[in-house]
């Protein structure tokens, strides 16, 4: 364990995330035809938003901290990973994906199904990087499997996260593609959000809101409700539109 922590200590923990994207992409490419998604489209819908994430995150950070960059404009191309706005980057990545999807007339649900292996393996990579960097650490516990961290026994929350991500990945691995496009993706989302909602309770770094509630759990519950609504019937209506779109695009 200590060897793993030494090898992947920050900032090298990012290697785990990049490796996970690479492995996820390998499997997504293998399974994309099952979902009726072309390999070229699959690669583009991953790489173009990634480029958007990197450039958008840096540019938005520079806009937010304009005075610092005005005094030192060459920092705009600095290799410092911390000169970055992650949520802004995600927003730009989402916009790039939407524009690409619209221009190529990609069907939403089959595309999301095809991307699911990337997301599932990416989640394993993120969990491993949390373990390597010590992020997402656990709260204090007296349970026998607690790990000593900073002088107290804590829940091994990163190990819980890795186990959950691997379990979800193995469940998806053996799941046959559903009749309705989107069910495969929504199952993944529901399981992942459910796991986050459950495991957040053991974290020591939660953002606490009114009444001691954990913000991540409240947000996760809202997304869980949305994914269950879609799985419970909402997807049928959306899928009909999606299947019709696919038939039209094949013609």
């Amino acid at each position: 364990m200590s060897q793993f922590l030494n090898i992947f200590a920050p900032p090298r923990d990012l290697i785990l995330v990049v490796a996970a994207i690479w492995v996820g992409l390998y499997f997504a490419e293998k399974w994309a035809p099952k979902h009726g998604v072309k390999l070229n489209d699959l690669n583009n819908i991953i790489f173009l938003p990634m480029i958007g994430y990197i450039i958008g995150g840096r540019l938005l950070f520079a806009i937010e901290n304009f005075s610092a960059f005005a005094k030192n404009p060459q920092s705009l191309v600095s290799l410092n990973l911390d000169l970055f706005d992650p949520s802004g980057g995600l927003l730009i990545a989402g916009i790039v994906a939407l524009i690409y999807g619209q221009r190529k007339k990609l069907s939403l649900w089959p595309t999301l199904d095809a991307l699911t292996p990337v997301l599932a393996i990416f989640a394993v990579g993120i969990a491993l990087s949390h373990l390597a960097s010590g992020s997402a650490f656990g709260k204090e516990t007296s349970l026998p499997w607690g790990v000593e961290l900073w002088g107290v026994l804590r829940h091994p929350s990163q190990i819980y996260e890795i186990i959950a991500a691997l379990l979800i990945l193995s469940l998806l691995w053996f799941q046959k593609p559903g009749q309705h496009p989107g069910v495969y993706f929504l199952n993944y989302i529901g399981l992942t959000i459910g796991a986050r909602l459950f495991l957040e309770a053991f974290r020591g770094d939660s953002v606490i809101i009114l009444g001691g509630l954990r913000l991540a759990q409240v947000v996760a519950w809202i997304f869980l409700a949305m994914s269950l609504f879609l799985l419970g019937g909402g997807i049928n209506n959306i899928s009909k539109v999606s299947i019709a779109q696919r038939k039209r695009s094949r013609k």
């Binding site: 650490f137 709260k139 204090e140 804590r154 459910g194 909602l197 459950f198 957040e200 309770a201 020591g204 770094d205 939660s206 953002v207 606490i208 009444g211 001691g212 509630l213 954990r214 759990q217 409240v218 519950w221 869980l224 409700a225 269950l228």
Partner: peptide, 21 residues
């Protein structure tokens, strides 16, 4: 599932209101 999840949120609320850090 949603009711159980909601109950879990309240059960696992941090009554001290402060992060472990």
């Amino acid at each position: 599932v949603l009711i159980t999840a909601l109950a879990w949120i309240f059960i696992s609320a941090d009554s001290s209101g402060t992060p472990t850090a």
